[in-house]
Design a protein around this nucleic acid. Structure first.
Lengths: 327, 327
DNA sequence: TTGAAAGCGGTACCAG
DNA sequence: CTGGTACCGCTTTCAA
């Protein structure tokens, strides 16, 4: 069933039906009513594919995330989705599992769908993909991995600062054997946390450290902790790249009979809701996902002036998973 | 950039380019090569909207879930998505937050996109929506809430049986003051768990019970537990409609200084991965999400013969969150 | 094996 | 304010 059937039933042209459906207020209210009636009676719903094929500006946005299973990404997705819905947009979501090849597919799908805007929240971006997005005139906002130069919008987080704070805080508590657990990903942002960790630790002559990486998942956190603790280096504090993995770390420590924080302190990153629900609740650095989702949305729909670079400052939150080092 | 440009560059018609792109093996291999070359050089990507508008069978599937934040739903989404991708389909996901009005929107979006198949994993289905899906010839598979009669596929879970097992197990442990924590949702499946709980408890003359509901979230679980425990009824065991909410319950108990399972036993449902990572790990009933995702996919793509009703039997898993009642 | 052309269901411009 | 109509980019007969 199509526009044409509705038009026939309402004794108007398809053009008029289209106008009514798009709220172009040029239509006489009596004909508008007639059309509405026909639409209702036929239970008509426009073909979205035809619409975006014919139309100019697209009413759908896209979001690509590395790992929607991690609540950090999911929270961003949710606020973006809510914003989109409230403003009459659809949101297409895709996740890449940190696989470059999946990223490629996702980007192409988004281009193929001619999304009106795309939020890229991944940690494995490749320059040629950015170029491809650019060539196809897709308005894009990047989280973390955006190129510094393009006219595309960028949202960044000052990981370095928060990570320094965390390390200093732990060092102040007497910790001198520190470990960092990261996850596999090709690029910058998580590495920035790792680099900040290494550099900060290196400032303390007495401090020693290790690092290790695994998948971004509960299992990955546990497995990394297992690998770490089965070696000769026994850390008194473990800093994790995010809360999600930290939860896996907590489990491994528990299963080894190590108490948190009496034997080992643990920190996460992101401040996902779960971080308050596990035991002990995690010391972490808050990254405001809602704010990020909001910013992303605005960058995509608020016309034109999109070439900001916004920087967000995470805030350290101390909870029960950290404490003084064993003497 | 369009088919036509590719056609021009390869000195063939758009029809031929289309054939090549769709792997119709009628094309002479030399021309095929020429076309491929042009495609590569132009870095051409088909317009998916045009494709689904023109084409017959759609290469995209849809999934509507109540709450993708709950890992239970997310896991189904993931296996469905993986299956889809591997077979060359796209997956459009939507979530309804248990809001009937959002469900309506989601269904319409899916119809509007003319998805080739739709998995509906919600607990708030309305008959008229089913009819609308039917009228629009959308091949659909329901989880839990499908109508018994239609030609549409159905995947069901025998909640009753597992809930009975859980109650009997706890009763055997000496628990006589039981509570059930559910979540708000209009319809059948979660109520089935609740009903099974009530009926089973009622068989034991000595047993008393309460029930309460809140949102399906960590906070909702905590808030329900708070409401429950601030009353006069002090349960020795709390059965939750799912693991996600149970995690919230654990937190509330902890904050009240109640030990699990020494003071209160807690059970979940679903066996999400998180249930093994929290402390104490949850006694729960396993629902095989992968299997469900798999079944859903098959129901949607495996031609025609889709009118099965598959029933899944959950399996109780005992972990540390349950123990003997205090004497 | 290939090309020409008729749609698919809308949108938007141009007349009236 | 409304209708006619030329596309949007691709698929799919029908002929050649």
């Amino acid at each position: 069933m199509s526009l044409e059937e509705v038009a026939r039933r309402a004794h108007v042209s398809t053009a008029t039906v289209s106008r009514v459906l798009n709220n172009l207020d040029v239509v006489k209210s009596s004909t508008r009513a007639r059309v509405m009636k026909a639409v209702a009676e036929l239970n008509y719903h426009p073909n979205l594919n035809a619409r975006s094929l014919a139309g100019s500006r697209s009413r759908t946005l896209g979001m690509i995330a590395s790992n929607l299973e991690n609540p950090f990404f999911f929270d961003i997705f949710q606020t973006l989705e809510r914003n989109a819905r409230e403003q009459g947009y659809e949101l297409l979501a895709a996740h890449t599992d940190y696989q470059p090849e999946q990223l490629l597919r996702s980007v192409r799908t988004m281009i193929g769908r001619r999304v009106g805007g795309l939020a890229v929240v991944v940690s494995e971006m490749q320059p040629d993909l950015i170029e491809e997005l650019d060539r196809n005139r897709i308005r894009t906002v990047f989280y973390d991995v955006g190129p510094a130069m393009t006219g595309m919008a960028n949202i960044r987080v000052n990981y370095r600062r928060a990570m320094e704070d965390l390390v200093e805080y732990l060092h102040g508590l007497g910790h001198n054997r520190l470990a960092f657990i990261g996850h596999h990903s090709t690029l910058a942002p998580t590495n920035e946390r790792e680099r900040a960790f290494v550099e900060t630790v290196s400032r303390y002559p007495a401090a020693t450290w290790r690092n290790i990486a695994d998948q971004d998942s509960l299992e990955g956190g546990q497995s990394a902790a297992r690998g770490l603790l089965s070696g000769d280096f026994q850390p008194t504090a473990i800093l994790c790249v995010n809360d999600f993995m930290a939860i896996g770390v907590l489990r491994e420590l528990r299963e080894r009979g190590l108490r948190v924080p009496e034997d080992v302190s643990v920190t996460g990153f992101d401040n996902i809701r779960l971080s308050e629900y596990v035991w002990p609740p995690l010391t972490t650095a808050d990254i405001p996902r809602n704010h990020i989702g909001q910013l992303a949305f605005e960058a995509l729909v608020n016309d034109g002036s999109v070439s900001h670079e916004t920087v967000i400052q995470p805030e350290v939150i101390v909870r029960a998973s950290t404490g003084p080092a064993r003497s």
